[in-house]
Design a binder for these strands. Structure first.
Lengths: 335, 335
DNA sequence: CTGAAAGCGCTTACAG
DNA sequence: CTGAAAGCGCTTACAG
């Protein structure tokens, strides 16, 4: 690879001048600019981003810390949005091999040693020490689905509470009264918001809250199966269940069918996410749509704004959710 | 962030000595090593990977060029394998915002300007000029599902041909004679191998090849729908169809059911990939299993071996495939 | 065993 | 408008 020195020599100017041409400084005569451009062309010179970063302090790299498997559809869609937003931004994306479980490991150190310009974080526990360190570090950060903020840290999430509220109302309007909720991981912000939405829905429907109708899980297919099994063992099983994820809803449906019942004939099921498979699955899944792709896009757009200006206020954004009605919910009918 | 100079000053030694301690050179007295280590501890010093890379020429970064949406389950699983293999390797992963459609763009330049140590490529057309450039560049490369090699470029793929062969044999053994093949994109190595496997299967079953039983697609759900519609319009539609991907198989099943027929009652369907959803889908999809995760892992392991030693011969590896029988295939029965 | 110096490929005041 | 020099944070012969 040709270096800036080679270009300077070829063009018969100093490296400082070459640098000015590369960076579009105005104070270069048209004549030398031409000479330099020709030399660049001739040598197929490309500035070394790494070396540049060493002096400017910018790496044109944003990092992602995603502590959830890529095979999770939510993660895929988020990443796809992130990728899209990055496409013509000049930034590349770095996935850090973070050793979050190693006590001697510091995520902030890792970012700094890589010179990252900013980072988006998803799927890390809020009380992991890295989160606080990150906020204090001053590294521009966007948290996805985590209500943390800082001098240079914003966040973005879906209208979780209202989403579940809508789902419960939908079931209520279909005549259901025994509506259960398959929750996520207690303590996680997303889980708390959705749980609140569940209670909102019951309240506006004048349905009393029953503790045995709320079971926790981890958003996975298997946790849907486990949770539903518990609900089916109740003396008075629910006639409808709202789930905190589509994958969990698939598990729930599986458990219901394995139990000899049908969806929506015997029990109605609502998911959350609206992943691609929700439409393909049988029955088609009624679910709360999240604009996950948009969340990915916006997280990057906002992050880049923060990177570009230290004055840009860290945003807190909420993406709307909406109810998508398919075949997994039906009017309640006494058997 | 403390720099090596700060540490040197704190420890009362030269930066060269600090460097030696960091890099575990043996020729440092135990006493000074202690002093330096203490200073490092005290200042919470972490070497700047970027600066180090500038002089060593190594960035401890491997790049991925993946020209397929992350939402594609194959891509997710591949990435998950890549991530796993990278976990404790010391390498981080960079996803380049490659502008492959921009004629002025050079992927190799991009890699070099980022100082990447190696790269894994997936989903790029073999005749894209970047491929040849990459091979010639000498940048250690692993191609996934593309039979390209070079001085420093190897590849890894699934036993595609035998996989489809097995699928056809399975159907033949179930009594099927009219077996169609929903192919991928003509010209792509993977497609050609699988198509050859289809022909192998017909041949070993003494079934004549019919051109109208092979229709092309692009691996997507929609292309499955389109392809199956064409097959259903034939005077003599097939009684079984082998698909080049699970997503396409889902589309095929959808088209069959929309046409008023059932799977496997009227038509048997086999997929390829064995993505997570193949098991959840109804009917459970009979499919060819690919060890996608293993491909991701091995692509990185081999890549790192190539990076570590210029003498390491670029590998050509083939992962075994296997037939997973579920509910979408059944014995042929005259209606 | 230790350190001064050159250098990796750039940018940035600053002087002219 | 142009360029010499210092410096970003490191490593690497090399001399002592």
């Amino acid at each position: 690879m040709a270096s800036i020195h080679d270009v300077a020599k070829e063009a018969g100017v100093s490296v400082a001048t070459v640098s000015k041409v590369i960076n579009h400084y105005p104070d270069v005569s048209e004549k030398t600019r031409k000479k330099v451009k020709n030399a660049i062309e001739l040598l197929r010179y490309r500035p070394n981003v790494i070396a540049r970063g060493l002096v400017t302090g910018r790496s044109w790299t944003v990092g992602v810390l995603i502590n959830i498997p890529f095979t999770n559809p939510y993660v895929s869609m988020l990443l796809e949005g992130i990728k899209t937003a990055l496409e013509n931004s000049g930034y590349d994306l770095m996935r850090l091999s973070a050793r979050l479980n190693d006590p001697g490991y510091s995520f902030v150190d890792h970012c700094q040693s890589r010179n990252l310009d900013g980072v988006v974080v998803f799927g890390v526990e809020k009380d992991h020490h890295s989160i606080q360190e990150l906020i204090e570090s001053g590294i521009p950060t966007m948290f996805v689905d985590m209500d943390a903020t800082g001098q240079r840290a914003g966040n973005i999430t879906t209208e979780n509470r209202n989403g579940v509220h809508m789902a419960v109302r939908h079931l209520y309007e279909l005549g259901h009264q025994r509506i259960a909720y398959l929750a996520g991981v207690p303590g996680q912000p997303v889980n708390e918001s959705r749980l609140a939405g569940y209670r909102d829905g019951l309240e506006t429907s004048s349905i009393p809250y029953r503790e045995d109708y709320v079971v926790n899980g981890d958003y996975s297919y298997d946790s849907g199966i486990q949770g539903m099994r518990m609900l089916l063992q109740l003396d008075q099983p629910p006639t409808a269940v709202v789930c905190t994820s589509d994958m969990a809803a698939f598990g729930v449906i599986h458990a219901i069918e394995a139990h000899g019942l049908s969806v929506p004939g015997d029990i109605s099921v609502v998911g959350f996410d609206n992943i691609y498979e929700a439409e393909l699955f049988k029955p088609g899944l009624t679910t709360i749509n999240q604009n996950i792709h948009a969340i990915g896009v916006k997280s990057i757009e906002e992050l880049i704004s923060m990177i570009k200006s230290a004055e840009y206020p860290p945003p807190v954004v909420t993406e709307p959710s909406s109810l998508v009605i398919r075949e997994s919910t039906a009017r309640y009918s006494e058997q």
